[in-house]
Computed example of a mutant assay.
Amino acid sequence: MPASELSAEDIAARLSAAGLTTRMEQHRHHTSIEAEVPDDFTADSWREVLDAVARADRFGLSASNVDGRVLWAAVRKAVPATGDVRGPGHQR
């Protein structure tokens, strides 16, 4: 299993351990992890989840009247080992 996938699964497990229900989704270049955060989330729990998402390549918190608060994190997938790191049509 690639290190990036292990990292994403570890983040999701840590968020679950803090009491959040997580969703993971695979994308072409990254794996996303999302979890809805209840209004009564404690300060200690926030410290746990922030420590977890700090291991991601990007993370943030979206808040809206419709969806509530959604904590998200993204872990980049491994870069190809070949010289084709700029994508099709941009090869050397």
Rank of each mutant, 00 (worst) to 15 (best):
P2K: 09
A3E: 09
A3F: 06
S4V: 03
S4M: 03
L6C: 09
A8N: 05
E9M: 14
E9Y: 04
E9Q: 11
E9A: 14
D10P: 09
I11V: 09
A12L: 08
A12D: 07
L15K: 09
L15D: 00
L15M: 04
S16H: 11
S16T: 10
A17D: 06
A17P: 05
A18H: 08
G19S: 02
G19D: 00
T21I: 09
T21A: 10
T22R: 10
T22G: 13
R23H: 07
E25F: 04
Q26N: 07
H27I: 00
R28N: 11
T31V: 10
S32Q: 14
S32N: 15
A35M: 02
A35I: 00
A35N: 13
E36Y: 14
E36F: 11
V37F: 03
P38Y: 15
P38I: 14
D40Q: 15
D40S: 15
F41K: 05
T42S: 06
A43G: 09
D44V: 02
W46M: 04
R47S: 08
R47F: 13
R47K: 15
R47H: 06
E48C: 06
E48M: 10
E48A: 03
V49D: 01
L50F: 15
L50Q: 11
L50G: 10
A52F: 12
A52P: 04
A52M: 05
V53W: 04
A54S: 15
R55E: 14
A56G: 02
D57A: 03
D57W: 04
D57S: 07
D57C: 10
G60A: 02
L61E: 01
L61A: 03
S62V: 00
S62L: 07
S62T: 02
A63F: 03
A63I: 10
S64F: 03
N65R: 12
N65T: 01
N65W: 11
V66D: 14
V66E: 12
D67W: 14
D67S: 10
G68M: 06
G68Q: 02
R69N: 09
L71K: 06
W72K: 05
W72Q: 08
W72D: 01
A73V: 12
A73K: 02
A73D: 02
A73M: 02
A73G: 11
A74R: 13
K77Y: 04
K77C: 00
A78Q: 03
A78M: 05
V79R: 15
V79Q: 12
V79M: 12
P80W: 03
A81L: 09
D84Y: 02
D84I: 04
D84L: 09
V85R: 12
V85I: 13
R86K: 14
R86A: 10
R86G: 07
R86C: 11
P88V: 14
P88R: 11
G89Q: 01
R92N: 09
R92G: 12
